[in-house]
Design a protein around this nucleic acid. Sequence first.
RNA 1: CGGAAUUUAGCUCAGCUUGGUAGAGCGCUGCGUUCGGGACGCAGAGGUCGCAAGUUCAAAUCUUGUAAUUCCGACCA
Length: 580
Amino acid sequence: MQQSKMLIPTKKEAPSDAEALSHKMMIRAGYIYQVSAGVWSYLPMAYRVIRKVENIIRQEMEKAGAVEMLMPGLLPADLWKESGRYEAYGDNLFKLKDRRDRDFILGPTHEETFTEVIRDSIKSYKKLPLVVYQLQDKFRDEDRPRYGILRGKEFEMLDGYSFSADQKGLDQAYDLQAKAYRNIFDRVGLNYKVILADSGTMGGKNSQEFSAPAEVGEDVIAYTDGGYAANLEKATSKFTGVQQTDEPKELEKKPTPGAHSVDEAAESLGMESDQIIKAMFYMAKMSEDESQPVLVLMRGNDEVNEAKLKDELGCEELELASEEDAVKYLGAHPGSLGPVGVGEEVKIYADNYVKVMVNMACGANDDGHHYINANIDRDFRVDQFGDFRNVKEGEIAPDGHPIKFTPGIEIGHIFKLGTHYTHQLGAQVLDKNGRLVDVIMGSYGIGVTRLLSAVAEQTADENGLVWPDSIAPFDVHVIPVNAKKDEQMKMANEITVNLEKAGYEVLIDDRKERAGVKFADSDLIGIPIRVTVGKRASDGIVEIKIRKTGETVEVKTEEVADTVGILLKQLSEQNTNEAD
RNA sequence: CGGAAUUUAGCUCAGCUUGGUAGAGCGCUGCGUUCGGGACGCAGAGGUCGCAAGUUCAAAUCUUGUAAUUCCGACCA
């Protein structure tokens, strides 16, 4: 491919508002072009990378026994109203109307759409299990698109769905998908972790998340050298609390004027923050019109983990109560809230670490006052103890190793959905015994365009992008240093033809640019191998440079194809090793 | 949904405080020199200053509204 015929609008400067390395470099390298906030055009180079990724996905899906199909992005709202997600999905759902005023949506995910097909097409367990998938653009009206194509309003996704008549079928499909996902991420050259995850609004209990450690990651991964890895929302550590044995002292109310945070209260009372109880007041939405006030007690220096709390409560939504609600139920503003004297209408949940404490300090439900020497049962009741806190770095994970934190980009997620959607939409089959059973569903997704961001984020350097050979837009970049010299152009063309004959994809920079411009652009666009045809062309010698390492070798022209083959193989093996 | 900032040439930005009719660098076109790490000289093209209304003899500049974009927070595949 001749570079003069490509559209690769490279830039010297990145937009001032670009933050992430991948964002800056993909723009500077002429890969992506912004159309609107969170909406991007994929220029020829980016699209080649996307197609490479898609091919890897298709191969691995086929190995896993999944079959590709394509659903529309434009969906009638009816099904979503039926499943309840037309409302539940919230503002991220793009809603629109057709000319007859019928409600439509732009699909943000396709559980309903696939379930409907299965419901109407499959009536017997004999046709199951079935695993289908698609590569398609999804639409989510993200309030805050970020970091180039990392979080967009329209993005390409691999979404797959398994349908089984029994749990065993689901387990098998899930395991096959998990294996396929590992293969895909290995092959695209990504450093990633498989982590325990919270399933969010998707429903279903069992899920694994695939996350790529990167500075701009929006999630926190808690992991260990022993192999444990979990989303912060799910991470647990060994309980190391020790029952305090001090004699209970008399409950005493102290003024703590102006103290709103735990630290301020600690200072005001002259005690350590870990002897203070932090009381967070939440409203848990249990159903459409029923909200349960919940007071959560934590050790002062711990943070509430809302996902864990939400699981325990089994509520639909959980949010911090408003100041008005705090005053209404507890009689004070946040900062002075506590469990003493709280009525039965407010549920009191407490973290396990609170259970072992005696003589605690806590808000007195009287603005500007705290109690000291509060004790469980004697001074206040706790309805439920549990693990409701975020783990911290250095704590011991379930595998016995100390926990470390890293930000991560979520690149894939697989769920054992169960019968949530099939039950709602009536997708049932006859089982062996002739009984109607709900089909059991699994849901699997990879953000394809986000994958590009994640890889770029992990591999780019200060000179530009550095694509792993498996998904690079081209294998080799051939650069005649001076396109006006016939000798160099002729040799470069010959090398290009030979490499293409040998099965490589080659981009030849046939532009009449100066050497510096060509080299800078070459570094920016990040093709793994560069062949420079320059001064020593007349001796039949060219230079081969590896983009990733900067290493160069000089070889005779007739050895170029062989050398490129060896180098690409080495790079590919390095990637495989690093991905492990 | 709260809070903040930005919007002037294809890109990165100056000009605005103190109103007088548009600037730089890069990029682009032509000519010449140069030719292995974003060269240099000369000559050019290119902007109803986000949009709308207002104040004024006069608005990029002041006022009001509005939109887009970005950041912080909230929310969340």
